[in-house]
Amino acid sequence: MRLEANSISFQYDNGNKQILNNLNMYMDSGERLGLIAPSGFGKTTCCKILAGYEKPDNGEVLLDGRPLSSYKGYCPVQMIWQHPENSVNPRLKLKEVLKEGDGVEDRVIDGLGIEPEWLNRYPSEVSGGELQRFCIARALGGGTKFLLADEISTMLDLITQSQIWNFLISEVERREIGLLVVSHSQGLLERVCTRKLDLREQ
């Protein structure tokens, strides 16, 4: 499977500068692509467009040759957002959050180090790092073919970071999921990615 962006351009409605200009990129299943650029160069915007949260002004996003918008129901391209506290409904218990995903396996839940006692809590009763694991688990449902990780480990300590990245690498290799990694940390990208893409060179 291949996820590709064909000459996409994007500008937010508030009239700021053109964020993405004729961007062409692709990623294949099983590939781990690192996305680099300084702040404000459209890394998150790029993820949002690839996952279908925003419509590009020009160009199209294709998954397996078909436009991404033609996939109904569970979207095969899932994005993990930078801020977990905005990504979960504050009024749902965490076990409900896991149920939102497309049949999240116990292996994923264990692998991310989610403790059973957290499941009965509300999102405001766990820490940001603990919450982020739930967001990652939720995005790893059965139907996921591509995973876009937008700065997902920024708020974690180094031990937890390595635990989560090791798990994610083994999981995407096992299931042949394409992984897009956005990070400011050069070392992390060196360690995790198989290929790198700099938005400035586009």
Partner: peptide
């Protein structure tokens, strides 16, 4: 809000999101 948009991408329909996510 972000979590409603995420729920839609996770394949939840309009009615289901309204009932489960918005009613509380």
């Amino acid at each position: 809000s972000q979590y409603i948009k995420i729920a839609r991408k996770l394949g939840h329909g309009g009615f289901e999101t309204a009932l489960k996510h918005m009613t509380p």
